[in-house]
Write a protein that binds this DNA or RNA. Sequence first.
DNA 1: GTCTATAGTAAGATAGAC
DNA 2: GTCTATCTTACTATAGAC
Lengths: 195, 195
Amino acid sequence: MDTKTRLVDSARELLWERGYAATSPRAVLDAAGVGQGSMYHHFRGKEDLARAVLERNADEMRAQVEADLAGAGSAVDRLTVYLRRERDVLRGCRFGKLAQDPDAAASPVLGPRIDEMFRWLVERLAAVVREGQATGELSSALDAHHIASALAATLQGAYVLARAERDPAAFDAAIEGVLALLETARVAGGEGGPR
Amino acid sequence: MDTKTRLVDSARELLWERGYAATSPRAVLDAAGVGQGSMYHHFRGKEDLARAVLERNADEMRAQVEADLAGAGSAVDRLTVYLRRERDVLRGCRFGKLAQDPDAAASPVLGPRIDEMFRWLVERLAAVVREGQATGELSSALDAHHIASALAATLQGAYVLARAERDPAAFDAAIEGVLALLETARVAGGEGGPR
DNA sequence: GTCTATAGTAAGATAGAC
DNA sequence: GTCTATCTTACTATAGAC
């Protein structure tokens, strides 16, 4: 594996584990096993390296979300697949972590990328909710964007709870809770209604 | 105001704004307008000062939550009051912020205090859900701890979304979404049922 | 292209004058 | 009890040898 790839891989892990502000270029270099100067040859600095990591993370996340939401089954079924997918709970969300990081959020190059990722995610979830409304599975009285926002927020908050309590069970409890609520919102008689 | 109080006040603001890892003692001293040595006279160091801040934050948060949840109205009404209470959305939750901070969460003195706060909050919310089940407002088929976890998680995640999108509207959308779901869970005929 | 060496700054903490 | 001065370490970045 070449040096540039090793740098991105190492930075990706450290950014996930420690966040942006708390990740030093030195730590990345040590983890990648390269000298001081290599990073500044391939990247303009810490921020530019983080940008490369964010681009890769965004590609992977979009692909994963699409895989979950574009599958078979009703809208609620697919949202359930997405929310119940196995995750590295205690490490948290690669994007949510950075959204809370003071330096990453304030960065003019990183901030907009984080912003864009979440706006895309919520809109993608909202589209599935609207599909559910179109088939009659979910009530048309619900605001699709609100429901999608609540689902995305529960997922992000579930990570926060699990990390605070140092217990993955806190994550599962929150996900099961919102799924139970979503289940009650299924319209009786709609496609794949309550069971 | 005495020096010790000014130090805690300044640290409290900076911890909220920047988190623990990214808040330097120097920044606290500058904000408080005191010299280097004063902090080390009143506190053992950065971690000890943060501990003092966390204790004050915990007191205030418990009082605020109790004020919202112990009021009049049905269980769902009170949960709604809690979730809709006005918040400094873009600054985030004083505890949720620290839960995501790598250094704060890893600290043996700060970590357990963050843990305890969230466990208390979820249990307090679960108690209200159980009250709703006792009066027949909410279905007894629901797992109170799961629902409480989902509500706490949505709140935390709503902060994450708003910060990521730099828009308080993202917070409101998530809260309204989960409230809409909670509303559908009201048992018809129960106290203060669906309207 | 990758390395070591080193710049300049700030971190967290301590020493000692007043 | 509060201050300034200073210690040691680590930060982000650059210089220049190989």
